[in-house]
């Protein structure tokens, strides 16, 4: 207990820097790999790195990034949301089927889709917090329920469509900027602000790291969890709506390709899968990284199988990187 508590400011700064880097090893490494990939691509196909191309990849990343907002919050709370696959599909079907491709019905469709997502998320949250069902079982079960419900609702073939006015949000441009990317940036800022400078954000990090401590400090853990899963359902619904707008219609299984990447983006972003540690900034990098990776793998004609293997490998690498830079603290 007698060691000195005063140290040179230089040493302090160094220590702080080291801690900062260690907590962000995975996102920084993926940032480096992103740059490397871009350089290699530009060498192999000169002109690859252009404003249009970058904007295009950012646009593709936005779907994943928005779907991963909820996943980030849920993982920070110490849980996981595996129901976003069919939440995305289901809400996209609701959106397309309610709005029927008619501009006048667009808002109604949007409201119906978002409400559906919110309700799904709230039910997840109630199951996890009030009934203490483990998040993995609750959301995996919910995924199946939505799958069945969607099939019943669409009778196996989704119909309807998205009017051009609606498609603007996913495909439109304002000057050189994609509307979708601008929307993503706005949402990102909101999420980061909520996490870092509000009471709710603090409580979420507390519940995620140690629910018992947070309960004993007077936090209503169940409310925090219900809110978090609700937001996850909402963000999945938004991703579904935007993806349907991008494609012009909804189709079954459109959400399946989001679950693993969304979780991967969060893990690559350096968040602890045990909750309480991380933020949305890393997830943004993770989403961009994974989208770029997918794009490149399909450009060089990797089969779906090889892509699956590489995807899994990347997640394990990120997990290991987090493990060895942040310690195995559970």
């Amino acid at each position: 207990m007698s060691e000195s508590t005063t140290s040179a400011p230089g040493e302090d700064r160094q220590r702080a820097l080291r801690a900062f880097l260690a907590a962000r090893a995975a996102p920084l490494a993926s940032l480096a790999v992103i740059l490397l990939m871009l350089v290699v691509c530009n060498v192999m196909a000169p002109g690859f790195v252009s404003v249009t191309n970058t904007m295009h990849i950012a646009q593709l990343s936005a779907f994943l990034g928005i779907a991963a907002i909820g996943q980030t919050l849920v993982i920070l709370s110490g849980g996981i949301d595996l129901s976003i696959a069919w939440t995305i599909t289901g809400t996209a079907c609701v959106y397309a089927q309610v709005s029927q491709g008619r501009p006048a019905m667009l808002l109604l469709g949007l409201a119906a889709a978002l409400a559906t997502g919110l309700v799904i998320g709230l039910v997840n949250g109630i199951g996890v917090s009030k009934f203490r069902i483990s998040p993995i079982v609750m959301t995996l079960g919910m995924n199946n329920v939505i799958q069945g419900a969607t099939l019943l609702y669409t009778d196996g073939t989704p119909s309807g469509g998205v009017a051009d006015e609606g498609r603007f949000f996913a495909t439109g441009f304002i000057g050189p900027f994609s509307v979708l990317v601008l929307l993503w940036i706005a949402l990102s800022i909101a999420v980061i602000v909520i996490l870092r400078v509000t009471r709710g954000g603090r409580q979420l990090l507390g519940v995620g790291e140690n629910p018992l401590v947070s309960y004993l400090s007077g936090v209503r853990n169940d409310r925090v969890l219900i809110a978090v899963y609700g937001l996850s359902g909402l963000s999945a619904a938004l991703a579904g709506v935007l993806y349907a707008s991008f494609s012009g219609a909804s189709f079954l299984g459109m959400g399946d390709t989001f679950v693993l990447p969304a979780i991967a983006a969060v893990v690559i972003g350096g968040a602890s899968i045990y909750g309480g540690r991380g933020g949305y900034g890393g997830t943004i990098i993770g989403a961009f990284f994974l989208t770029l990776l997918t794009t490149l793998l399909s450009i060089v004609n990797f089969s779906a199988g090889a892509r699956g293997v590489i995807y899994g490998g990347v997640i394990i690498a990120a997990l290991l990187l987090n493990r060895f830079t942040q310690g195995a603290a559970r």
């Binding site: 990090l205 507390g206 401590v213």
Partner: peptide, 17 residues
């Protein structure tokens, strides 16, 4: 305590709640 969190985070957590 939240072992991973800072002194300040721990100290003001209940008040914030």
């Amino acid at each position: 305590v939240f072992l991973d969190k800072s002194v300040a985070f721990n100290m003001t957590f209940a008040s914030l709640a």
